[in-house]
């Protein structure tokens, strides 16, 4: 164990040194911004800063952004910290995990507040004050939409849970929504995933080509699709034991499912590799400036 710790420490220190030398020589990881004045009001001009590729760093209104440069290095640290999980649990991963939970929970709550509570609930209930404050784009003279009182009332019942007594009242809104989902999904699933899927499977089991000759491949294809769907359903059949003929058919169904899963697995690999490639490209391109495939730093 100690030897391993030693090796890791050595690797880390070495890596850090290489990074330092590289950073001093290349000056990588810098982020530049452009100043854009979007409006000029009494209190002074309203200025936005937009990130620009480093190749534009010599332009007049472009400058180095210190917070974003720090951010770039933190982002790299976050990337490496999470990646370190594949080596096993370690303090850096634990730190990143804690930050991740906190920031993401906070971010999604902020998003829910502005997008849901302000944009929907408050806009519906008190459009006037909202127009004067957060949502000046609202039309004038909108009437309150009183239907929003219903979710509001249910939310209050929901939060009743926090009180010491009568927490069971919180079950009422839950029951409402579970019932609503059940009813709503029941029909929409049967419409889209049941009838539509059957509809799509209605195929001729003998196929002729346009010039009226027998199409062997087309026929095999359709028979395989229709047969496959039926075999798969036999596997899911619950009321008959999987023995004899049914057992044989169900086994065919298992084969089909395995082929399906194999295909899905193989197909997905690509997507996952692309994600890793994206992260590595971030490290190599945006942070370390080792490569420049999109020509962000021409002339630097």
């Amino acid at each position: 164990m100690q030897r391993e710790t030693l090796i890791w420490t050595a690797v880390m220190v070495l890596g850090g040194l290489v990074l330092l030398v590289h950073a001093v020589r290349v000056g990588n990881g810098r982020v530049y911004v452009r100043e854009v004045t979007v409006a000029d009001v009494k209190s002074g001009p309203v200025v936005h800063y937009k990130g620009v590729p480093p190749s534009l760093h010599n332009e007049a209104d472009v400058s180095l952004s210190v917070p974003r440069t720090i951010g770039m290095w933190i982002a790299a640290l976050c990337t490496l910290g999470i990646m370190s999980f594949v080596l096993g649990d370690n303090p850096l991963y634990k730190l990143m995990e804690s930050i991740f939970v906190g920031v993401s929970a906070g971010y999604l709550m902020v998003a829910a507040f502005w997008d849901e509570i302000v944009q929907n609930l408050l806009k519906g209930l008190v459009p006037g004050p909202m127009r004067d404050s957060f949502l000046p784009g609202l039309e004038e003279g909108l009437n309150p939409d009183l239907t929003y009182l219903a979710p509001l009332a249910m939310s209050v019942m929901m939060l009743w849970r926090l009180s010491p007594k009568g927490a069971w009242i919180a079950r009422w809104p839950l029951a409402f929504f579970i019932g609503a989902t059940a009813g709503f999904r029941l029909v929409s699933y049967l419409e889209a995933d049941f009838t539509q899927q059957i509809n799509n499977t209605i195929l001729p089991l003998i196929v002729y080509t346009a010039d009226k000759s027998f199409d062997v491949w087309g026929t095999i294809r359709n028979v395989l699709i229709v047969g496959g769907v039926l075999l798969g359903l036999v596997y899911f059949f619950f009321s008959v034991p999987h023995r004899g003929v049914v057992g044989g058919l169900a086994r065919g169904g298992v084969w089909l499912l395995m082929i399906t899963f194999g295909a899905s697995f193989g197909y997905t690999v690509m997507g996952r590799i692309a994600l890793l490639a994206d992260r590595l490209q971030f490290l190599f391109d945006d942070w370390l400036w080792l490569i420049d495939p999109t020509m962000q730093r021409v002339g630097m």
Binding site: N200, Y267, G271, R272
Partner: peptide, 16 residues
């Protein structure tokens, strides 16, 4: 779509 979704969306092609 992502690689993982594609196989499960294939049944919707070409009708839907």
């Amino acid at each position: 779509c992502t690689g993982v979704q594609a196989p499960y969306l294939y049944p919707y092609v070409p009708q839907q």
